[in-house]
Structures are given as C-alpha cells and as structure tokens.
Design a protein around this nucleic acid. Structure first.
Length: 264
DNA sequence: TTCCAGGCGTATC
DNA sequence: GATACGCATGGA
C-alpha cells in the first residue's frame, strides 16, 4: 500500500477503487457527495473528506496516525481486489458484475453502527435509511454509543420517523447495554453462534445479522440475501454461488448487488 | 393512487 | 418447517 504525507493530507495510489461505487452503493449510509468524485463522511465519529485526482486519492485533514489506524483498514487497503476479481471472473455473471463496477470495495465499518444501520435498513429504501441515520446523528451529536441511548424507549425515537423499526432499536440498545449480547464476543465467535446471538435481538433476522457480520465485523464469507440478491440467485445461481467464490462471498455480493440494482 | 423499499415478527397450518 | 400477512414512512 503506497501513501504519501502532504501536510495534513494523505495521498494514496490505489487501483480497484471508485468513490461513487464504494461510498454510494448502499453498504454505508453516512457519506455525502460534496462534488465530482468527492465525499464527506465518517468512520463512526471520525470525519473525513476524500476526493479523487487523476491517478491518486486525497484524504484531507487527517494524520498519518489516523490513516494507518483507521482509514487504511476502513477502505480495506490491505486486500488485493484485483486478485479477488480474477477469481470471481471465472464465473460469467460475476465477471460482468466486476467489469460493470470494478471500483467497489468493502468498507470495514464499526460493528455497532453497522448493526443499528442495518436494523433500520429493513423493508426500507436507501435515501430514507440515510435520512433516519442522519436524524439520529444530528440529535445525538454524532453516531451515538449504546450507552448514550441507554433507557430510551421506542417513543423516544419518534424523531427518527423510523416507523415500526423504533422498537427494534430499543431492544438492540437494551441488549447491548445489558450485556445480553456482546459485539466483542460475536466478532470472534463461530458463525452459527454469532448469527444466533445477533438474532436474539428483535428485528434482527438472517439478513440483518449477515450484514452486521459482513460490514461490521469483516466476516467476508457472510452473504446477505436481500430482495435484489434473491433475484440474482434465482436468475443466475439456482444451485448457489460457485465454490471458488464462497470464501469471499460477501465481497462477491457487493458486485452482484450493485450490478443487479443499477444495470439490469 | 398504488407500489415498493438492502426483512422480520407473528399467526396458522 | 413452510407460508401468508401486516408493518411506518415516504419516494417514485
């Protein structure tokens, strides 16, 4: 991974990376487009401005320490996406999906934020998910910790206009605060146990659990199946994904989701 | 106006 | 265990 410190900016050379494809593809909900190939957003509550130049990216107003500690991980810069795409491209549909939007990367998000975000995402559309999370952050001065929301009831969340999901947020906050579920334990638990523990929260089913594991805990073999992926599977993979894609099924899912949602 | 959105809980069989 | 249905809200 190549990077260069320029004052308060970090410059990186990075192939297989497109800001629109990565930051505005429905995996994270707090990035705002601020211009052509330019975004403002957060890793939990650390802000960042990032934009693309001809053959490098600029991370503005950060430090080498934050870059190495936070952003290099967040943007998954240690993973060779070219190699992953070569593996995926043995398959005809995946090959098309990778060619269609080859700059998608998996964002390694905060586990708590990912869990809450994908609880909010259910039976919802992306612009409205973003709106609900924006209101949550505005009300709480950033993305709230579980502790910050301790004791809040579904009624207290009415300002979110999250509908029936408010009671799910309440239950999730309670279970995390009480230690009834532990994100640290889930992070390293075997997948069946991890899924079971996540699904003990009201409003967390197989899909949301899978999203929390993939986006929040980087369990890349996890494969969230939503309405779009269900269509991909029915049309192209009635017998499941090819074996060689399964170790990184979650990353394959990113390409397939975006391809199905915007190209078909 | 009606349909749908990165699903899930509940009732019913 | 499978299947059907309701659910809050708001954009298309």
């Amino acid at each position: 991974m190549e990077y260069l410190v320029r004052g308060a900016d970090i410059r990186i050379k990075q192939t297989d990376f497109d800001l629109d494809e990565t930051l505005d593809c429905g995996q994270a909900f707090r990035w705002e487009r601020t211009g052509d190939k330019a975004y403002h957003g957060f890793m939990l509550n650390t802000p960042l401005d990032i934009y693309a130049e001809k053959d490098f990216f600029v991370l503005k107003n950060t430090s080498e320490e934050d870059f190495l500690k936070i952003w290099a991980e967040y943007f998954d810069l240690y993973t060779d996406y070219g190699e992953l795409k070569r593996i995926f491209s043995e398959d005809e549909t995946l090959s098309k999906a990778c060619a269609y939007a080859g700059g998608i990367r998996l964002l390694k998000q905060d586990a708590w934020e990912a869990l809450l975000s994908f609880i909010i995402s259910q039976n919802n559309n992306i612009p409205r998910i973003k709106g609900i999370i924006k209101r949550l952050c505005e009300e709480n001065g950033g993305f709230p910790t579980p502790d910050k929301l301790c004791g809040k009831t579904a009624d207290d969340f009415s300002y979110l206009r999250a509908g029936f999901r408010a009671k799910y947020i309440e239950d999730c906050v309670n279970k995390v605060n009480s230690g009834s579920i532990s994100l640290d334990r889930i992070r390293t638990a075997p997948l069946p146990e991890a899924r079971r523990e996540l699904m003990s929260v009201k409003g967390v089913g197989p899909k949301v659990a899978e999203c929390a594991l993939l986006y929040g805990m980087y369990r890349v073999e996890c494969f969230p199946v939503d309405v779009w992926i269900k269509r991909v599977m029915e049309k192209y993979y009635p017998c499941g994904l090819p074996e060689y894609a399964k170790a990184h099924a979650g990353i394959a899912q990113q390409y397939l989701f975006h391809y199905m949602r915007t190209a078909e």
